[in-house]
Design a protein around this nucleic acid. Structure first.
Lengths: 138, 138
DNA sequence: CAATAAATGCACTTCCATTGCATTGGTTAT
DNA sequence: ATAACCAATGCAATGGAAGTGCATTTATTG
């Protein structure tokens, strides 16, 4: 817990009880979560607080947003190897069509994508859909 | 126009004036459009009709949906080379951060993405973001 | 302890997606 | 041709998620 506090401070994020809890929640989750997921986990807290906390985390580059095609934006902690603050970083995510969970595959880099002449690639969003390891193992 | 009629019939879609117009609209557009775009183009028609028409087109595999990260779903006609009814087809789209338009790059195939053991890849959604040819040429 | 600034909570708004139901319009069978 | 039927359309309403304004609480600083 102390470690989290120091980490947040190092990222220029003021430490509050709520923020510690939300960070802890994200860290324990192995998958990307929606705002509703967080909401359900902290029913005492107001939705706005959770929303703004996530936004703060995003601005300070410790959380990144994922659009996995479900229409609902999900969030995940940036881990080692996730350089999402860098525009050219490739975000590879896996969305399970069975359990509906989205997982960060930060260790799986993808090759540079070629685009036609005249187009300038700044950022790539790649979502692989299928069956995750938990669901395929059943 | 006769060609469109025959095409729709061949896809098991009942031909109506509205459907012909919407198909024509999509065919003329070179970019993926939102429901609002269609709505603006056909102010006389009801939003629901446009919505359901697009859904019908989707079910019959002549239109596919694109989530480009803007949060608003876009739609585009499936063209030659677009086999979006096939699960393993790779959808490559380009989203311009300047003009906000999304373009289908069906001719640009991308290599098979490797996923970790236990994961089964069924479908890949790839959106490249940057500046499109029109905007970069300014 | 006072003054200030940030964080939280509440209420409200907006936008898009979606559905139920009534109505219209086109197709088919008698 | 007409009745019966089913699909398409239009209208109204709902729901969910994102986002904003403002009051209040909490924390920090002088």
């Amino acid at each position: 817990m102390k470690i989290i506090e120091e980490f947040l401070e190092s990222k220029d994020i003021r430490v509050t009880a709520m923020r510690l809890l939300i960070y802890k929640f994200l860290a324990e989750k192995q998958v990307a979560v929606t705002l509703s997921d967080i909401e359900n986990a902290f029913e005492k807290a107001d939705r706005t607080t959770l929303y703004r906390t996530i936004k703060t985390f995003e601005e300070k580059d410790i959380v990144h947003q994922i659009g996995d095609g479900t229409g609902i934006t999900k969030y995940a902690l940036c881990e080692k190897g996730c350089n999402c603050e860098i525009e050219t970083d490739l975000h590879l995510h896996f969305h399970c069509n069975n359990c509906n969970e989205t997982i960060c595959l930060t260790e799986h880099k993808i090759p540079q994508i070629k685009v036609p002449d005249g187009f300038v690639s700044e950022n790539v969003n790649l979502v692989v859909k299928g069956i995750c390891d938990k669901c395929s193992g059943q």
